[in-house]
């Protein structure tokens, strides 16, 4: 059971996502064990605040019996294609225009990903 500040009154989608992460980890491991590290990947266009997620995940992991793992976030770059000059480029957020012509008219190729990549178990848990 979550403390009240993480239940009713505290609603952001990072909290739901933190619960989804522990569900995925629990089902992959088949048990609840204390973890050293959790490695995840977040795309810059996923709409996820890395710091909010870290805050929520730290609490949810502890409460659900996964100890106090470090959350290691691999922030990727988005891949975009400029609709004015056709070049493909990388961006760290929605606001970065084409490095060639400066246009912000583009199509998104990737950047919304959000995956749990791996976990590292605490000594003595393997």
């Amino acid at each position: 059971m979550l403390p009240p500040e993480l239940n009713g009154g505290f609603s952001m989608h990072e909290l739901s996502l933190a619960h989804d992460m522990t569900r995925i980890i629990g089902s992959a491991l088949g048990r609840k064990v204390h973890l050293d590290r959790v490695n995840i990947t977040i795309g810059p266009l996923s709409g996820i605040s890395a710091e909010s997620l870290r805050f929520c995940f730290t609490e949810v992991a502890r409460i659900e019996g996964f100890g106090e793992p470090d959350l290691v976030i691999n922030l990727t770059k988005a891949k975009l294609i400029c609709l004015d000059c056709d070049i493909e480029y990388e961006a760290k957020d929605f606001y970065q225009g084409c490095p060639d012509c400066g246009s912000i008219s583009r199509r998104i190729l990737s950047g919304r990903e959000f995956t749990v990549d791996s976990v590292e178990l605490e000594e003595g848990n393997d």
């Binding site: 992959a28 959000f114 995956t115 749990v116 990549d117 791996s118 976990v119 590292e120 178990l121």
Partner: peptide
């Protein structure tokens, strides 16, 4: 280390 590679 346990690989998971699952989209949340």
């Amino acid at each position: 280390k346990v690989d998971i590679t699952t989209s949340v």
